[in-house]
């Protein structure tokens, strides 16, 4: 039964792999708050091509988190159509959604969300376990090496800094080689240098071909991406490419310059 489901999903993917990676049409989500209805998403249309690096910005309550949850298949829209890799996701059941989350989506959260009392390596292995994958240790090691934690495999979250924890989370997100990486305020809990280090990893992943959708309310962070989608009141109010893109590697180099005088010169 399970195998049949998987085959079905794959068949869909192969049939229509030509369109955009992500295709949202008229996505609407309404929350029931007691008597009141809250329109969290109001007919949102959005296309994301493979290889893009998109920042979703907006004030809290603008609907960007709800959008993220729906794109991440944690939540289903009340109306509209959402195709991921050509598969209509809005109508899938809980088990099919879990399979999509496992294979096509990698999550990075603001609060890291690692399993406590579990080593970095084991944390990264978790998605592989649920995906019933073989050679898990090898894949997890490779993912940790890509985020620069090849020497921290056996450390537990409590033994790692915030930036390192977030890098473990990124390794966990990329270990299944998902179609898209979803990052929800990935730098929200980090100091600026660590934030830049995380952004550097994301930019590197994007350069290597990964598609990334990131929610942030910091304009400085958003400017590391290639495209910015601004939201307000459940609608997209602005969608444009980023012109003066920041490179995290340069930012890090600048931050590490010791002399305050030299910083003022730029």
């Amino acid at each position: 039964m399970e195998v049949a489901e998987e085959d079905q999903v794959d068949a869909h993917a192969d049939a229509s792999a030509t369109g955009p990676l992500l295709r949202l049409r008229g996505i609407t989500k309404i929350y029931q708050m007691g008597e009141q209805e809250l329109l969290a998403l109001d007919c949102v249309d959005l296309d994301i091509e493979s290889g893009e690096f998109v920042a979703v910005t907006g004030a809290s309550g603008s609907g960007k988190s709800t959008l993220m949850n729906i794109v991440g298949c944690l939540d289903v829209p009340d109306a509209g159509s959402y195709q991921l890799d050509g598969v209509e996701v809005a109508t899938l059941d809980e088990y099919e959604l879990a399979a999509i989350r496992n294979r096509k989506i990698g999550f990075v959260f603001q609060g890291f969300n690692l399993l406590a009392r579990t080593t970095a390596l084991e944390n990264v292995e978790v998605p592989l376990i649920y995906g019933r994958r073989s050679n898990r240790t090898e894949l997890a090691q490779q993912a940790l090496q890509r985020v620069g934690l090849g020497d921290r495999l056996e450390h537990r979250p409590s033994e790692l800094s915030g930036g390192q924890q977030q890098r473990v989370a990124i390794a966990r997100a990329i270990v299944t080689e998902p179609s898209i990486i979803l990052a929800d305020e990935p730098t929200g809990n980090l100091a600026s240098l660590q934030s830049e280090e995380i952004m550097q990893i994301f930019q590197q992943l994007n350069d290597d071909g990964a598609t990334i959708l990131m929610v942030t309310h910091e304009q400085d962070i958003a400017r590391h991406c290639k495209r910015q989608v601004a939201m307000r009141d459940g609608r997209i109010i602005e969608d444009q490419p980023i012109t003066e893109r920041l490179r995290a590697s340069e930012m890090i180099a600048r931050m590490r310059e010791p002399l305050p005088g030299s910083a003022g010169r730029r």
Binding site: R101, F107, N113, P127
Partner: peptide
Amino acid sequence: TREIGIRKAVGATPRD
């Protein structure tokens, strides 16, 4: 609860 949320986010089914 949080651990369950994490596991579900990375692809654990209700059965898992």
